[in-house]
Each structure stands twice: as structure tokens, then as C-alpha cells.
Write a protein that binds this DNA or RNA. Structure first.
Lengths: 191, 191
DNA sequence: TAATCAAACTAACAACCGTTAGTCTGCTTC
DNA sequence: GAAGCAGACTAACGGTTGTTAGTTTGATTA
């Protein structure tokens, strides 16, 4: 019952995230989830209070983790390009660690109820911090002078899609992937 | 009843795509769709045969359009980088023209039933063609010698996410966006 | 004017949804 | 051995789901 051994509730949430990734929150029934756990639907409610509660547990903790790490990166005195590399590494690391949760974060956030506003606020702040870093890089002449929003969108789209791609590679080395990805995103692909 | 005036069925499909974008296929009920059309759910069935039929109409036509255009690009005798620019322009053009459909293609393909296999085959072929172009560019020394799959993934992730971003910009000029995006994706962002 | 037809309607269906209430089982702790 | 408790169970609820059947309406055509 400590942090090493996973509680029954944590098992349910993890299994739910896996199912949500495959079919989406709405298409997964409590009976589907129960079957995947090898129990009956009603038994789930000894551990969780509602389906919505599961979604909240998956998404909010991830969104808050991104926010915490972004604040660390923001507060550092690194150059803009180095900050971007840390953001790339952050996304790779979290996605490797929790692929199913990241799929859920990306695809099912709109099904949050009480927590929807909170999530949207975190996302908005995260994206603004991202843009701020890019713009500071443009000013310091590290980054080419293009639309900062397009640059942010382009990089973030790739990072947000990592959950689709990482599970296809066997034994991903997070450091290697983050490095290659940083190179492609920052230097482009031409010679 | 010709190609200029949109049939009732086409109106339904277009409205459905809009709703599917916002909540996903599974979360949209036939009663939701009917209400958005200003009619009752049962009346929908004078025009379509099933909910699944709507999904099929949205996704398959788009997937086939991408396949057709990819074949044209593939058959051209352009250099690899120029082919990539055409692919970027293709995604921008189709997404501007049919944002809701693209959202649906990206998020709801797994809810296809009879057509799922067909869709997956088209997608697989499209991605392989994409990789082939990148690899030919590496051989011809136009593109840096990195993992072709990572390059493809990185570019395609951005292109597939366009539906999220385009509606936020008022009056998108497809040509301008495609050009800026090509520049960022190919040349990178650093100076 | 009569006939046709697209497109709406009401009513209902069986199946499935998330969730609750109450109960039983078997292990751990006093 | 009694008590407590985590974790499973059965049974059932009120509501929602996609869909069908049969009917009405109002405009167009013969």
C-alpha cells in the first residue's frame, strides 16, 4: 500500500488509460473496463467514484506535471534554444513513461467536466510560455524571425503526437530520441 | 440537386463532421445531430442509412483524396524537397477546405467498421510513399542523413494537426501558410 | 385536380449506459 | 476465535442509445 506497490485504484486508472487510448473515453464503457480488469462493473466502484473521476485522475496530474516542469525551464538562465531542447526532452520523457495517459490527455480533454476550465487554463499558460521562449530566441538572434505562433504550433504538434509513435519503436532510448528530434525540429531536415 | 446545391444528405454529413470534431464520434448522438439540423432523430434516416454510414462518408473520401494526390506527386519528376513542399501544400489545402472532416479523419478512424481495413491500408501506403520520398532525398544529398521515419513522423505530425490550428486564424491564406510551414519544417528554426 | 415524392413527424423497440444498494468471501489483526 | 475490512459479487434502477415502422405534410409534376 506504499508507492512501490500499485493500489487497486491505480491499476484501474492505468487500465482505463490504455482502453481510452484505443477507443476514446466515450466509447469505453465501465463494463469494458471491468472486463479488462477481470471483474464486474459494479466492483469498480469500490475503488473509484465515477468514470469522470478516472478521466480527471489521468489528465490533470499530467497537465500539472507539464506546468511544473515548464516553470523550472522558464526560471533557468539558459539560452532559448537550450530551453527548447529541454522542452523536447520533457515531452519525450513523460510520453515514454505514460504513453496511454498522453493519448488520453490529447484526445479526451474535452470530456472533462468540473476540471475542464482548470485544464484549459493550464494549457493556455503552457502555450504562452512556449511562445515567450521562442520570441526571446528571435530577439536574441538564436531563432529565425518567423511567426512565433507557427513555430510553436509546428514543434508542439510533433511533441503532442509522440504517443502515437513511441509505442511502435521497441525499446526507445529517451535520450537518443530527444536528441534526434531536437536536431530535426531546430536545424530542419535539409543539408 | 446538382453539384452546386448541397443535398440534404451532404448537409447532414457536414453538420456531423462539425459535431464529431468537437466531441468525437462516440459522444455525438443521432439526437444531437438531429437537433443541430433542426429536425428529429428519426428524420435523419430518410437521408442516411446509419451513423456508421456518415463516418464512412467523411473519412474514406478524404483518405482517398490524399492517396490520389500522393500518386500524382510521386509520379512527378521533381526533386525530393519540391515533392515535400507539394505534400505540405496538399495538407494545408485540404484542411482549409474541410477542417471538420480532417479532425474526424484524425480522431475517429478507429470507429470505422467495414471500412477500417481499407482505411488502414491507404494510410500505410501513404506513409510508405512519404518515407520513400525522404529516403530518395537523403540519397540525392538534399536531405540530411537522419532516420527517415523520425523525419516523416515529425513533418506528418505537424501536418495532421493543422485542423487544430487553422480555425484559430481568421482568413487563412493557404499559399502563405504552406510556404511558411515548408520553410520551418525544411530549414528548421535556427538562424 | 390528381398523383407523386421528398422530407418531416410520432411512437416505440431492444439493447446498453453509469451507477447504487445490499450481500458474501476470505484474509489479517486483536 | 471474534472483529474488521478490502474487494469481489448479484440484482436492479432510470435514462439514453441507434434504429424501425408507419403516418402526415406540403410542394411539384402530370
Amino acid at each position: 500500500m506504499n508507492s512501490v506497490v500499485q493500489t487497486r485504484k491505480e491499476e484501474i486508472i492505468k487500465t482505463a488509460a490504455k482502453l481510452f487510448k484505443e477507443k476514446g473515453y466515450s466509447a469505453v464503457t465501465m463494463r469494458d473496463l471491468a472486463a479488462a480488469m477481470g471483474i464486474k462493473a459494479a466492483s469498480l466502484y469500490n475503488h473509484i467514484t465515477s468514470k469522470q473521476d478516472i478521466l480527471k485522475a489521468i489528465i490533470v496530474s499530467l497537465a500539472e506535471e507539464f506546468t511544473r516542469e515548464m516553470n523550472v525551464i522558464k526560471a533557468s538562465d539558459l539560452r532559448a534554444i537550450e530551453k527548447l531542447k529541454l522542452i523536447v526532452a520533457l515531452h519525450v520523457e513523460i510520453t515514454v513513461k505514460n504513453t496511454y495517459g498522453m493519448a488520453c490527455l490529447n484526445n479526451d480533454w474535452m470530456h472533462l467536466e468540473e476540471q475542464l476550465e482548470h485544464y484549459l487554463q493550464l494549457r493556455k499558460t503552457y502555450e504562452q510560455d512556449f511562445i515567450d521562449i521562442i520570441e526571446s530566441g528571435i530577439i536574441s538572434d538564436e531563432i529565425m524571425d518567423a511567426n512565433a505562433e507557427i513555430i510553436m504550433f509546428s514543434i508542439l504538434s510533433t511533441l503532442r503526437s509522440l504517443y502515437l509513435w513511441i509505442p511502435k519503436k521497441e525499446a526507445v532510448n529517451a535520450n537518443d530520441l530527444a536528441e534526434t528530434l531536437s536536431r530535426v525540429l531546430i536545424n530542419g531536415i535539409n543539408k
